[in-house]
């Protein structure tokens, strides 16, 4: 299945994806990156769209219960939460692993002069 087909299926399955007449729109680059990762995982049968929709809906409900005022501009924050959760539930990477990588990336950014590509190295994992 092509990426475009997968994206079309995602739009059908997820009516609330921010979009215009031509397809999805993203407020920031990371939103598109999160969307792209989700498409790839779907293409590899890690989950179905109904399964994804259920996880995302649960994350949105949880955020609303916690007082999230506006679903529109926080949609991809919920999306990212859902992605982390589903990746953990499927046994791909648990929260501890993701935390460890986040610390490492922060370390990598902190030692990388501005204007140079930020690259993760082994030493970023040792604290």
């Amino acid at each position: 299945m092509s990426g475009a087909d997968a994206a079309a299926e995602a739009l059908d399955a997820l009516p609330e994806i921010p979009r215009d007449d031509d397809g999805p729109v993203f407020r920031e680059p990371w939103e598109a990156q999160a969307f792209a990762m989700t498409l790839r995982l779907y293409q590899q049968d890690l989950f179905t769209w109904p399964e994804w929709a259920a996880t995302l809906t649960a994350e949105i409900k949880r955020a609303q219960a916690a007082g999230d005022p506006d679903r529109g501009d926080t949609y991809y924050h919920h999306w990212l939460n859902a992605l982390e959760r589903l990746v953990a539930e499927k046994g791909v990477a648990d929260a501890t692993t993701l935390d460890r990588y986040q610390s490492a990336w922060r370390h990598a950014a902190d030692r990388t002069p501005h204007g140079e590509p930020i690259e993760l190295e082994k030493r970023d994992f040792s604290d």
Binding site: W30, Q33, A34, M37, R40, L41, H77, L80, L83, E84, V87, V92, A93, T97, L98, Y101, Q102, A104, W105, R106, A109, D110, R111, T112, P113, H114, E116, I118, L120
Partner: peptide, 19 residues
């Protein structure tokens, strides 16, 4: 003069690296 990634960018990059 060091680089900076927001918490959200850190999460997205970490997911991408692990995946």
């Amino acid at each position: 003069e060091m680089s900076e990634l927001s918490d959200t960018q850190l999460r997205v990059r970490s997911l991408e690296t692990v995946l």
